[in-house]
Amino acid sequence: MNALQRVALALVIIGAINWGLIGLFQFDLVASIFGGQDAALSRVIYTLVGIGALCCLPLLFAPTADEESSAVERNRNLQYSTEIAEETDPSKFNNEKEK
């Protein structure tokens, strides 16, 4: 996870905590700190949280460490071998059928 994804995840966590406070206690922490929901700074914070959520969407579809290690393990266990056999002459089969 790079630095941008970490910042985006931190913003999403802040937004989730704020929504939890709104849902449980009807208290908007961002609005109370930055001067109300209509204040410019509050709107900037809300916008950054939304952008952070969009930046975290790829994390939802990224493979986990377990999936990556199992893929490596699957590739490690592959055995590439060939079967060597004599090729038969198809004309022999035709001759046997005619007899």
Rank of each mutant, 00 (worst) to 15 (best):
residue 42 S to E: 08
residue 76 R to A: 13
residue 13 I to Q: 14
residue 93 F to T: 01
residue 24 L to V: 06
residue 55 C to R: 04
residue 59 L to S: 13
residue 69 S to W: 09
residue 44 V to Q: 11
residue 37 Q to F: 03
residue 33 I to P: 13
residue 66 D to P: 00
residue 41 L to A: 15
residue 31 A to E: 08
residue 44 V to C: 07
residue 68 E to S: 12
residue 94 N to A: 12
residue 6 R to V: 09
residue 60 L to D: 03
residue 79 Q to A: 07
residue 21 L to I: 01
residue 37 Q to D: 10
residue 51 I to E: 14
residue 33 I to E: 10
residue 84 I to P: 00
residue 83 E to F: 04
residue 42 S to K: 05
residue 99 K to A: 13
residue 93 F to I: 01
residue 46 Y to K: 07
residue 29 L to E: 02
residue 22 I to D: 05
residue 10 A to M: 07
residue 70 S to P: 00
residue 63 P to G: 04
residue 51 I to Y: 12
residue 20 G to T: 04
residue 80 Y to T: 07
residue 80 Y to W: 05
residue 47 T to P: 00
residue 59 L to V: 03
residue 70 S to K: 15
residue 65 A to E: 15
residue 81 S to H: 04
residue 77 N to R: 12
residue 37 Q to W: 01
residue 53 A to D: 07
residue 69 S to T: 12
residue 16 A to I: 02
residue 19 W to A: 15
residue 24 L to A: 15
residue 54 L to F: 08
residue 64 T to R: 12
residue 96 E to F: 14
residue 4 L to G: 08
residue 98 E to F: 05
residue 76 R to P: 00
residue 6 R to G: 09
residue 45 I to P: 00
residue 88 T to G: 10
residue 60 L to N: 04
residue 86 E to T: 05
residue 91 S to H: 05
residue 37 Q to R: 14
residue 81 S to M: 08
residue 29 L to H: 02
residue 33 I to A: 07
residue 80 Y to D: 08
residue 30 V to Y: 01
residue 14 I to K: 05
residue 99 K to M: 11
residue 48 L to F: 09
residue 13 I to V: 12
residue 34 F to H: 12
residue 36 G to N: 13
residue 29 L to Q: 04
residue 52 G to R: 00
residue 37 Q to T: 14
residue 44 V to M: 12
residue 5 Q to N: 10
residue 59 L to C: 09
residue 17 I to N: 11
residue 19 W to H: 10
residue 10 A to I: 04
residue 46 Y to I: 06
residue 79 Q to H: 03
residue 84 I to D: 10
residue 34 F to S: 06
residue 45 I to K: 00
residue 21 L to E: 14
residue 41 L to T: 09
residue 76 R to T: 05
residue 43 R to T: 02
residue 42 S to W: 00
residue 29 L to F: 10
residue 20 G to A: 06
residue 79 Q to M: 04
residue 35 G to N: 08
residue 36 G to C: 13
residue 70 S to L: 13
residue 79 Q to C: 06
residue 9 L to H: 02
residue 50 G to A: 14
residue 10 A to R: 07
residue 82 T to S: 14
residue 85 A to P: 00
residue 28 D to M: 06
residue 39 A to F: 03
residue 92 K to M: 11
residue 83 E to Q: 08
residue 72 V to Q: 13
residue 4 L to W: 02
residue 13 I to L: 09
residue 67 E to L: 09
residue 10 A to L: 07
residue 10 A to N: 10
residue 22 I to G: 03
residue 85 A to Q: 12
residue 70 S to C: 07
residue 35 G to I: 04
residue 48 L to Q: 11
residue 61 F to G: 09
residue 17 I to Y: 10
residue 33 I to S: 06
residue 31 A to T: 05
residue 63 P to R: 09
residue 75 N to A: 06
residue 57 L to A: 15
residue 38 D to P: 02
